[in-house]
């Protein structure tokens, strides 16, 4: 019964959406909105082929590297800035300014500065994904419990130990929230960066299909993006559950108590 309920919740809404889609496309042919069954067969035809290797894997590769860079840079810089009042005072206005600029606007500039290669795409994605992680890390570091900090000081927790046992775990709930945000942003930026001056990738394929008026194929690319988004989210939540197990337990305990 519980399993059924879970399956129902997971697939319920998408199933309803697909049913509506089927019903509205059943009568008449709208060229620009293909029927679900045609969608499914086109999807298999397009992506279950060498395209997986020529376009999907490069895209996923770019996204992975960008997210990794954003994570490392974001956390390291975030901790440094969070721990230093001077750095914070110096950088906070600048950070808020840069974060407000959508990195897609910078694409023409980056095209000029870096060129039409993977580095440019990674730069676009990192410039968008870095800020949620960095700013959340700073906030997480700043909001460490005062009593816990004093305890750490009293027991001689210094330098790298302090970061490893106090700062990083303490800031991890906020850091994870920042990462979740970056995942969503990153996927969008990946696609957009591949729509300009690209030679491969999922975004490139979608634009290509649009140019050739290959509408079902274009939609299949979009569906693929959705699927990747869901997979990323599921993977992230599994990781989050492990990393923040203590945090959920703590929240639950304080809610009961």
């Amino acid at each position: 019964m519980i399993v059924l309920k879970r399956i129902g919740m997971w697939f319920g809404l998408p199933a309803i959406l697909i049913a509506i889609w089927w019903a509205t496309t059943a009568q008449g042919v709208n060229f620009f909105v293909p029927k679900p069954d045609k969608m499914a067969s086109t999807f298999a035809k397009v992506w279950y082929s060498e395209k997986f290797f020529t376009d999907v894997l490069p895209s996923i590769g770019r996204l992975s590297i960008s997210l990794l860079i954003s994570l490392v840079l974001g956390v390291v810089l975030g901790i440094a800035i969070g721990l230093s009042r001077n750095l914070r005072w110096l950088l906070e206005p600048l950070l808020e300014f840069v974060r407000a600029v959508p990195s897609t606007i910078l694409i023409p500039v980056l095209l000029l500065l870096i060129g039409i290669n993977d580095t440019m795409k990674v730069a676009v994605i990192v410039l968008g994904c870095l800020w949620p992680i960095l700013l959340n890390t700073v906030e997480g570091v700043r909001s460490l419990d005062e009593v816990l900090k004093n305890t750490a000081r009293v027991y001689g927790l210094r330098g790298f130990d302090r970061i490893r046992y106090l700062v990083l775990p303490g800031a991890s709930p906020l850091i994870m929230a920042g990462i979740r945000h970056s995942l969503a942003v990153g996927l969008i930026l990946l696609v957009v960066s591949e729509m300009f001056a690209s030679t491969d990738g999922i975004g490139y394929s979608i634009i290509n299909f649009q140019n050739r008026v290959a509408i079902p194929e274009m939609w299949s690319g979009i569906v693929l993006l959705g699927i990747i988004g869901v997979l990323l989210s599921v993977a992230f939540q599994a990781i989050q559950k492990r990393v923040l197990g203590w945090y959920y337990g703590l929240k639950e305990a304080s809610n009961d108590g």
């Binding site: 005062e146 004093n150 106090l166 775990p169 303490g170 203590w246």
Partner: peptide, 19 residues
Amino acid sequence: PAEGMAVVFQEYSRSLFPW
């Protein structure tokens, strides 16, 4: 904070590392 000194604080729940 000196070595050789230990402290027990009033707010125990905030003094222990929850992770």
